[in-house]
Design a protein around this nucleic acid. Structure first.
Lengths: 224, 224
DNA sequence: CCCCGGCCTCAAGAACGCGTAAAAGCCGGG
DNA sequence: CCCGGCTTTTACGCGTTCTTGAGGCCGGGG
């Protein structure tokens, strides 16, 4: 879920934004002054910040600088000042967008979507995570306790198919077909041998697997 | 130098932008309608596009879609329409910013700087660095201990592909295809020979590589 | 109760892929 | 024409991975 940090000292604006953003499925955090905004941003790692410039404690530009010191989170500035010098100053300090109050909620939301879209396009990293290990499909790696687990090509072939279908049942035939090719769709013994190996490498208790589940007579399931 | 594509059918606006942008060191391209804009964008690969929505031939949203089909170049929309539905439509189509006419030149330039800044932050330095050597993709050179290492064309081809995908596993087939061409996708021996050479040139301990990693049976990985 | 199909485990030989070295082929410049 | 740099080819030792077979476990049906 996308998380938004709303920073404004006017409660009615914060309330309005919270309602609108929550209704659209965003996770909303709020702050009423610059210092707490910086603290919350560090802790909560929001995906985007909506920042009012007229805060009681810090100058708006200082808040932007405080964020830009360690992060490239998109910042959308809200401000009552319409003069271009204020806009230029905020944008050059590192803001991504500048919206003047009073603002149209539709427009703000559209600008927010644009900012988030840009940012996910950059990071887009498909990872599937379970309680005991992490499968990173982009770089083809599996980590367990933050520590890489080496998989052979055949092992990775199986993990990849299962990780691309999380929670879904994958038939033996499909696994054999995609990993060993159409000639070996009946070698179900291969699957037993390799699932045993994968469980030894990935499961906490290989005898009682919690993620690489056998559905007898049907296939296998990757439980997250 | 940063290049900007200005698309507008009003010559005086194009002229004003060209003068201001050129004075600030930008390389300016121009187009007066949507179709030529798309063509110029493909050829010139501008770093940012300033797009007027009221073009004679195509609808503004279609131009945005045409660009977004193959590129993530930042698009700043210029428009006389101030209603929020127009803004929402353009932003959701893939625009990065929306400025209403008449606009302040200072503000537009600041928004343009913001868009470019974001994008260079994203595309990252054309330099990939490891603990023992540095790959400079812009000038096609590798340095080690501040001191240039000479690579043959084939060696550079491999390093370049890996450096453009840092951390990612690159399959043998992809490497062979891109360096030797589609006729040689099975010559995996080439890779062994060349990786041995590269390790001798770049790794501290060629027998125990820390950056040019082999993933047996799958491919190679550039670890940073 | 026994049988049977499907599953898990284990182990060993075969097959494969990798690193390395060195020779042979190719090509352009001096 | 010869030389040097670059690429392609060949050969071999070695460790890892795959395949295969045998044995045991478990639950359901006869």
């Amino acid at each position: 879920m996308t998380s938004v940090l709303v920073v404004d000292d006017e409660p009615q604006i914060v309330r309005a934004l919270r309602i609108n953003l929550t209704a659209r499925g965003y996770d909303v955090m709020t702050a009423y002054d610059g210092k707490s905004a910086l603290g919350i941003a560090v802790e909560g790692k929001p995906d985007v910040v909506v920042l009012d410039l007229g805060l009681p404690d810090l100058d708006g530009v200082d808040v932007i600088a405080g964020l830009r010191g360690w992060s490239t989170i998109p910042i959308i500035v809200l401000s009552a000042r319409t003069d271009s010098s204020a806009k230029v100053e905020a944008l050059d300090a590192g803001a991504d967008d500048y919206v003047t109050k009073p603002f149209g909620m539709d427009e703000l939301l559209a600008r927010l979507r644009a900012a988030v879209r840009r940012n996910v396009a950059r990071s887009g990293d498909p990872v599937v995570e379970t309680s005991s290990f992490v499968v990173d499909l982009a770089v083809k790696k599996v980590r367990r306790d933050g520590h890489e687990v080496h998989l052979t090509p055949t092992e990775w072939g199986l993990v990849e198919i299962l990780a691309r279908n999380p929670g879904r049942l994958v038939s033996q035939k499909q696994l054999l077909q995609e990993v060993w090719g159409p000639m070996h769709v009946n070698e179900s013994q291969y699957l037993r041998v390799y699932f045993a190996q994968l469980r030894r490498k990935l499961e906490v208790d290989p005898a009682h697997p919690r993620h690489l589940i056998t559905e007898p007579g049907m296939g296998y399931r990757f439980e997250v």
